[in-house]
């Protein structure tokens, strides 16, 4: 099968790979580049575990062809902490005991980050709306909602 080149930045670092045409961004990230923080929960765009941020927007990497991402800036949950310091969202998920099995967590954090990037002080309804594409089977969602609201509050305190 013909290989196609893809080149993008992942968490600020340049990445270039040859992939099979038709490879999803999820599989390219996990199998080719070695970033396994996006998870394959359904490979059909219904669970949100594979969510990444692509040029500032939330994307389901299982429904995105890698070859369409040339030149893009991609962020994943593995790239959020800097110098060993957790991102406020990561900290909030820890403190709120918002992870159980942890499989949905990277996708949840991506969805929450896009929300807070666009809406720094979201209402509860806005948080619910932002997380509504992500499935969690363990927590009952409430701790995750609380974590996002807490992270928003701590962000606004930093800004103030």
């Amino acid at each position: 099968m013909a290989k196609v080149p893809v080149q993008f930045t992942l968490n600020g670092a340049e990445k270039a790979e040859f992939i099979d045409s038709g490879t999803t961004l999820l599989n390219a990230l996990r199998d080719k580049i070695g970033d396994t923080s996006p998870k394959g929960g359904c490979h059909q765009g219904t669970c949100g575990a594979c969510s990444v941020i692509l040029d500032g927007e939330l994307r389901l990497s299982c429904l995105t062809l890698a070859e369409t991402c040339n030149g893009a800036a991609i962020t994943t949950t593995s790239g959020l902490s800097e110098g060993g310091v957790l991102h406020p969202l990561q900290r909030a998920f820890l403190d709120a005991f918002a992870t159980q099995c942890g499989f949905c967590t990277p996708g949840m954090i991506m969805a929450a980050k896009v929300l807070l990037d666009h809406t720094p002080n979201p209402s509860r309804d806005e948080v619910v709306e932002a997380l509504s594409g992500n499935i969690c089977r363990c927590t009952g969602y409430e701790p995750i909602i609380q974590a996002v609201l807490t992270a928003a509050r701590s962000n606004s305190q930093h800004a103030a």
Binding site: R30, D31, G34, D35, T36, S37, P38, K39, G40, T76, T77, S78, L80, S81, L86, L89, Q90, F93, L94, F97, T99, G102, F103, T105, P106, I109
Partner: peptide
Amino acid sequence: RPRSDSPGHVTGKTAYFADRN
């Protein structure tokens, strides 16, 4: 006590079986 596995979960570093290639 905080969960010892949570830092791995929130940073995407926890290894699930399929994270091996």
